[in-house]
Design a protein around this nucleic acid. Structure first.
Lengths: 336, 336
DNA sequence: ATGAAAGCGCTAACAC
DNA sequence: GTGTTAGCGCTTTCAT
């Protein structure tokens, strides 16, 4: 299945039909202003007639621009696809990319330690990269960032002055969530955290501590739920197994909260009567559990859009804001 | 950020360092056998020394091969990312693609009716496409299939003699699941289906009917759960609202089963005592619910691998099997 | 405003 | 077995 066998029109043929030179066709395709109205019209007509689509390989070769962006997923596939948070992020990214000339190359880190991924990016195959999550162990990220412009989802692990990233104020959000629990009269509060190898995990734990300290309270339990539903369930059991029974828990993601709630409920504990829960994300799972989850909303779709928009700006030669921090909002439902 | 500004080595430079011609370098890079051992070694050394990575645009232009594969997602992002079934599929696809020279271009249909997607594929930008799910309304798929080789995940909506697809025997699996319920002594059986605009939805419903007919039973309820957890919950409510109380339900996906179970349980019905449930997929959600779900296992990861392997074979000029049907297996847990 | 011409880095006949 | 040569389809000076 070669290109020519499908008989795709070339710029040369368009030029012939329009009665102009290749250069002129190229100019109108690329939106140059220096083209007469008649010429432009003739070219556009020829393009439509021949159903012309520029060959991106040729364009890339001639201009050293690939019009491709790497969507780097340094994440276990199950985690990535299992969390509605990422769904919203990618959806946002896609909504911006779709309206541009760029395409997304899906690069999943998986178990190859990023070797092939790195050489792909460094081999000049993409113009930039969007890195949707980031762990301390992801050392290959640095090599990617050294090769092409990068936008991170969330504060990068080792922040550098010139990094671009989109984040929410995780620390403030977590503090707000915890404060809500305290305001409800709860005093024996535990937390289920994300992985502490991720900035989001650390920041939300810090926010939890901020609010607890402000209230003069000491956490009655802390467990890592790995940002997954199963991890949240395991963490919940861990906390229960210590013998203390918290009357409230700040859970750093909705997915983990779902896991925790099912353990609570099958232990005969009522939510929120016995144990109040506040989650984080306000993803679809928040309204899919019973009782519906009180949670911190983060604008995931907008975050995705902002990530893509920022990268496009960089690639367009602009100088966007380096750190965009969006804010979170408490969504008060029934679990706390 | 141009390629040349990053000083990437070209084939010419490698040739110079190795003391051979470009052609010879090209031969060793592409694994031609017609190269002497010394030449091969010299070239490989030069490649390593210069950190040479072939420019894929140039290669593509010269050979009319893009080394890119479209991963077409004709699915609402939330559904796609929210279902662990797709996670396993994509994970399988990725595990094969990763070891090849191909990359995946992520094309999400979303709301543009596939217009840009179609012109992208028809524009000669990919060598083939993997279509991970398929609805009757996805008319743009035909135009994609007309342009490049395509492998479908699941029987395509309008099957043609030359289609390639990987599927499981949904009908037999659904029948087995239903037969299990019947064998447990249940007689008032309902089903929650996937969208009947999808072959998997239809086939599983057919299998359900097969088993019911074989046992001389009449379904006490049928509702569409849209292959989502929330949809499963809604469908469960619908069935309950009709006034009949089934003593068993075949639910055509684990995700829907989770939704259905939560409705059942918050209605005070016990699983499996009052209502037995068999799901479909054996995805991680099956073991994440209480009680753990009895379900039909389908080899999702293998399906993904087979999809990618089949496409690679086609692109390599081989003639793989057109329809690969994998079998399902009852995983007997606690919900039935 | 437009055209001519020179590549971009690579593959693939074709000759030797 | 290896080198020479002619493009692949496009962008981009540079003239005009």
């Amino acid at each position: 299945m070669t290109i020519s066998s499908r008989g795709a029109a070339t710029i040369e043929e368009v030029a012939a039909v329009a009665g102009v030179s290749r250069s002129t066709v190229s100019r109108v395709v690329n939106g140059s202003t220096a083209v007469s109205a008649e010429a432009r019209e003739a070219v556009q007509e020829a393009i439509a007639r021949l159903n012309y689509v520029p060959n991106r390989a040729a364009r890339s070769l001639a201009s050293s621009v690939t019009l491709a962006i790497a969507l780097v997923v340094p994440e276990d596939t199950t985690r990535f696809f299992g969390d509605p948070f990422f769904a919203a992020i990618v959806s946002g990214i896609n909504s911006v990319i779709r309206d541009s000339d760029y395409v997304l190359n899906l690069l999943i880190a998986s178990d190859d330690a990023g070797e092939k991924m790195t050489s792909y990016v460094r081999g000049g195959n993409v113009d930039g990269a969007i890195i949707v999550s980031h762990h301390t162990s992801d050392t290959f990220i640095d090599r990617i960032a050294a090769a092409v412009p990068v936008v991170y989802g969330g504060r990068p692990v080792r922040e550098r002055p010139n990094d671009y990233y989109i984040d929410v104020d995780n620390r403030a959000g977590a503090a707000d969530a915890t404060a809500h629990l305290i305001a409800k009269g709860r005093r024996n509060i535990a937390t289920i955290t994300g992985p502490l190898t991720m900035p989001a995990g650390v920041d939300r734990l810090d926010g939890f501590h901020d609010a607890m300290n402000d209230a003069g309270l000491t956490p009655v339990g802390t467990a890592d739920g790995n940002f997954t539903a199963n991890g949240g369930a395991t963490a919940m059991r861990e906390i229960l197994d210590t013998g203390v029974r918290p009357d409230a828990i700040f859970v750093a993601s909705d997915l983990m909260a779902r896991g925790a709630m099912s353990v609570l409920q099958s232990s005969g504990l009522r939510v929120p009567e016995d144990v109040a829960i506040v989650g984080f994300d306000d993803s679809p799972v928040a309204t899919g559990v019973v009782p519906q989850l009180t949670t911190m909303r983060q604008p995931s779709f907008s975050q995705g859009r902002a990530m893509a928009a920022t990268l496009l700006q960089i690639l367009g030669g602009e100088e966007p804001t380096h750190a965009t921090i969006m804010s979170t909002e408490l969504i008060d439902r029934d679990s706390a």
